[in-house]
């Protein structure tokens, strides 16, 4: 029988698998822009780098195949030349780091989530073998969703080598606006597809994207909700990221200065979010997941996603 498996013969990925090997504690370092997420890496852990390079961008398929060590900036530069972009955050770092941490970008409402963008992942398992999950097309329900599991797993289940990401066309027009005293809930409700609505308790920022005429129409509509004026971009974000639901940002969960993403929940604050326990049932499954994917807890020791 003819087989068309997703197996790769890219020697660069196989070299990476050999580098990960099958023994000893190991962690992949990207640009270390989110190095503290999940705790401190155990001392004595070998750190390695993931392979670099954009393998193939297919704008008409809305996908790009990219090795994990490539910087997001380099990827987005290449995609921009074809009028496209991804959901990965612009803040820097590598593609593999962004996928491993799984944080969405500020324009999450416009660009979508990182988890929904990862169509296929190749990673090295604890036995040093290259594994492929997902597939190279925009719609796929073949088998269990390994890409979802790996995305945001903080490198604790495998070492990401290469991903295929969904790309999207960059809208023709982008405009940031802000107003003091506007009611953020009303602003969010009035807009069809804002790229972002941010609020710091006083000021509301809006990022509109789309056809210029639509952006103009929504800009005009916003005048009825506040004294909106164009601005250069989002405010400076405080250092700590809080994972909240959209309703929690209105319940004064954060006492320190903050900037919250309205309709999303994610909030940046000057103090760290207190730790909270994972749902008990989910933590049982999560621990089994870690144990079955990485029996000897080789990967990224010291880092943990739950308390």
């Amino acid at each position: 029988m003819v087989r068309f498996t997703l197996a790769t013969d890219d020697p660069v990925l196989h070299d990476f698998a050999a580098l990960v090997g099958s023994e000893g504690a190991v962690a992949v370092a990207g640009s270390r822009t989110r190095w503290s997420v999940g705790g401190e890496l155990a001392s004595g852990t070998r750190t390695i780098s993931a392979p670099v390079g954009i393998v193939q961008h297919q704008p008409e398929e809305m996908i790009v195949t990219v090795r994990a060590g490539t910087t997001v900036a380099d990827l987005h530069d290449e995609l921009a030349a074809a009028g496209q972009r991804t959901a990965l955050p612009q803040r820097g770092g590598t593609v593999g780091g962004a996928v491993a941490v799984g944080e969405n970008c500020l324009d999450r409402l416009g660009r979508g989530s990182v988890r929904d963008a990862v169509l296929q992942v190749r990673f090295v398992n604890a036995h040093g073998q290259l594994v492929t999950g997902g597939g190279p097309v925009v719609k796929n329900v073949t088998g269990f969703n390994v890409p979802k599991l790996i995305t945001g797993s903080l490198g604790t289940l495998g070492c990401i080598a290469e991903v295929i990401l969904r790309t999207n066309p960059t809208p023709p027009k982008s405009r940031w606006l802000k107003a003091d005293g506007a009611e953020p809930k009303k602003v969010f409700a009035a807009l069809l597809h804002p790229a972002a609505v941010l609020w710091d308790g006083t000021t509301t920022w809006v990022h509109l994207e789309g056809h210029e005429a639509d952006v103009d129409a929504e800009t005009a509509m916003l005048a009825s909700l506040g004294d909106f004026a164009t601005c250069d971009g989002p405010p400076d974000l405080p250092a700590h990221r809080w994972r909240l639901s959209p309703s929690q940002i209105f319940r004064q969960c954060v006492s320190a200065p903050f900037v919250a993403s309205v309709g999303v929940g994610t909030t940046w604050a000057s103090v760290a979010q207190p730790k909270r326990p994972l749902d008990r049932g989910a933590s049982v499954v999560a621990k089994r997941m870690k144990d079955t994917f990485d029996q000897d807890h080789r990967f990224n020791p010291g880092r943990c996603l739950w308390t």
Binding site: G102, E103, N104, R108, S113, R115, V141, F144, N145, K148, L149, T151, G152, S153, L157, R243, L244, S245, P246, S247, S261, V264, G265, T266, R276, L278, D279, R280, G281, A282, S283, V284, V285, A286, M289, L305, W306
Partner: peptide, 22 residues
């Protein structure tokens, strides 16, 4: 088990994402 959450990025592995389509 409660998988996922109303946060945009719930804590822990994306077990919700693993469950959908299983």
């Amino acid at each position: 088990a409660v998988l996922g959450g109303l946060e945009d990025e719930p804590d822990g592995y994306d077990l919700r994402g693993a469950f959908v389509g299983s």
